[in-house]
Design a protein around this nucleic acid. Structure first.
Lengths: 138, 138
DNA sequence: GTGTATGCAAACGGTTTGCAGAACG
DNA sequence: CGTTCTGCAAACCGTTTGCATACAC
């Protein structure tokens, strides 16, 4: 288990447990957001057995601490990824392929405008693109 | 019931039924997206009684037809609004207030770039902002 | 008349809650 | 050692499915 996971937890004042460290390591290693089941199975491959409920609770704590982001791909469930690595996704509506979009985020540039116009404080946003992947186009 | 609802249904080749017309009229009248329960209750106030399942099925048909958009505010359920009126939303993470954001949509401008870079066809996107509303800031 | 839309009952999947025991600091 | 985290069982809620009846075209 990486030293990084311990450091991350300490930096946000969370207790260091085996499950929490393993989830941070797992999320740091994946190419696209995982749902709760995938996280649990990924942990199992790493010989870390956590109850589904525990995974939910750890993820919830991580979201509150701001180190994990909750993502919706219109599947009727959420996916999760580390918040540190800000980017968006393209989701194929036919085969479900998920592709990270690493281009400049244009949404953040709008925060100031929205805050001034509406008197709110913007902290986060969701931005996902939907359509057909190259395979499903043909 | 408005003539508009009949016209909309005919224009997308859907059968004209009382429930479908009522849902279109309802969605055309609301200031922010409704969830399934709110739609059903809103219909009840208009003396249109539809089973929950029927509301789900009508909404599903409308999404396929492209006249309704599905929206996620990280509540564990979806909300719906007419697709004709493209805009985004600000959601207060404390009190749940929903505010429409009518500024220019910067996400659509990215479609071409993403399509060229990733070889996909972008058809739609989600873009919602989260934070604290003016009341909850203080 | 034919095919689709609706209502009802039941199932389903993701998520949350309560409580007792285990582990962190 | 006190507080927090975890596991287990059960409940919860949004959503989907199967089938019989009613309605649109």
């Amino acid at each position: 288990m990486s030293d990084n996971s311990r450091d991350v937890l300490i930096s946000v004042n969370l207790k260091v447990t085996k499950g929490r460290r393993a989830i941070i390591d797992l999320l740091a290693s994946i190419a696209h957001p995982y749902d709760i089941q995938e996280i649990q199975k990924g942990l199992k491959l790493r010989h870390v057995l956590l109850d589904t409920v525990t995974v939910y609770r750890i993820i919830e704590v991580f979201i509150q601490a701001g180190i994990v982001r909750q993502i919706d791909f219109r599947e009727g469930k959420y996916r999760y990824e580390l918040a540190s690595d800000h980017h968006h996704h393209f989701v194929c509506r036919n085969c479900g392929l998920i592709e990270p979009i690493h281009d400049v985020c244009v949404a953040k540039e709008q925060y100031g405008l929205i805050e001034n116009t509406h008197g709110v404080k913007v902290e986060d946003h969701s931005l996902e693109f939907f359509g057909l992947c190259s395979k499903c186009r043909s």
